[in-house]
């Protein structure tokens, strides 16, 4: 039976006015937060993989109280169990620390496949999947826009800047998926009700065996020194096409020496 972990993250809604708290220099997570869209797609892939080959899907998150909603969403979609890594001491972790905590939670559980999004919409480091592969000594099959699992291997098309490459890796592997991978299913009422009864394991710093002296923003490898808001961009001239707009645009761009 395939053991599949899917990594989900609760992020500020991209439709909302996202903020960095100037005092803490951290992402303000007090506004509208949602499961990152890419992680819904990762859950979809995990469920499809389970449905075609059998298995068990565990949704894993690290984050404050709200982050549990991302796990609940995955459970409502059909994941079997959840893991929530939560500890005040983990606040302000950088990517290297986050990967350490996730690796500590995932490491000894014998997952065949760990599925993540390629890049989160808040941190945008696109680094956690590769870091996990490094820490767990698993192969990395990342930035996949298609994915198939067969005969103990995962294969798919990896997005590159100029197109894509076909890759294949032997399990166990860490996989990350891009937004082309699939459309996520909507949880139905039955799923939402069932999710309430599914087990969610809570892990703290001491459960993970991470030293408090290595954890959180006070001990991070990278630090944010300054955060400045850029003034919002102002609109300029808007004209209604009276039959000469194309000509006017050419005149405008020429006078600005842009063409």
């Amino acid at each position: 039976m395939m053991k599949i972990a899917v990594l989900v993250k609760e992020v500020p809604d991209t439709w909302s006015d996202r903020r960095i708290d100037p005092a803490t220099k951290r992402v303000d997570r007090s506004g509208d937060v949602v499961i990152d869209e890419i992680n819904e797609k990762a859950v979809e892939v995990a469920l499809q993989t389970k449905e075609s080959g059998g298995g068990e899907v565990t949704a894993v998150t690290m984050g404050p109280k709200n982050a549990l909603d991302a796990v609940r969403k995955a459970l409502a979609m059909g994941a079997d169990a959840g893991i929530h890594i939560i500890d005040d001491a983990l606040g302000g972790s950088d990517a290297v620390q986050t990967s350490a905590a996730l690796a500590a939670a995932l490491g000894s559980r014998g997952f065949d496949l760990i599925i993540a999004g390629n890049e989160s919409t808040d941190g945008r480091t696109a680094s956690i999947p590769a870091m996990l592969a490094e820490r767990l000594g698993m192969a990395q099959a990342t930035f996949l826009r298609t994915l198939s699992v067969a005969d103990g291997a995962v294969s798919g098309e990896r997005m590159t800047e100029d197109g894509h490459v076909e890759i294949t890796a032997t399990l166990p592997a860490v996989v990350s998926v891009t937004e082309q991978i699939a459309e996520a299913r909507f949880p139905n009422f039955k799923g939402i009700m069932a999710a309430k009864k599914k087990p969610v394991e809570v892990l703290t710093l001491s459960d993970l065996g991470i030293d408090a002296g290595d954890a959180g923003g006070a001990n991070s490898w990278s630090v944010v020194d300054t955060v400045t808001v850029k003034p919002p961009r102002e609109g300029g001239t808007v004209i209604k096409d009276d039959g000469t707009a194309g000509q006017q645009l050419a005149d405008y761009l020429a006078s600005a020496k842009l063409i």
Binding site: E234, I239, A245
Partner: peptide, 23 residues
């Protein structure tokens, strides 16, 4: 249009060809 320096409210299928001609 809230962030455009120069905005044209119009049908792109007429504006773009005319613009290319003008260029």
């Amino acid at each position: 249009f809230d962030i455009a320096d120069f905005g044209i409210v119009g049908d792109l299928f007429t504006v773009v060809p005319q613009f290319m001609e003008a260029v």
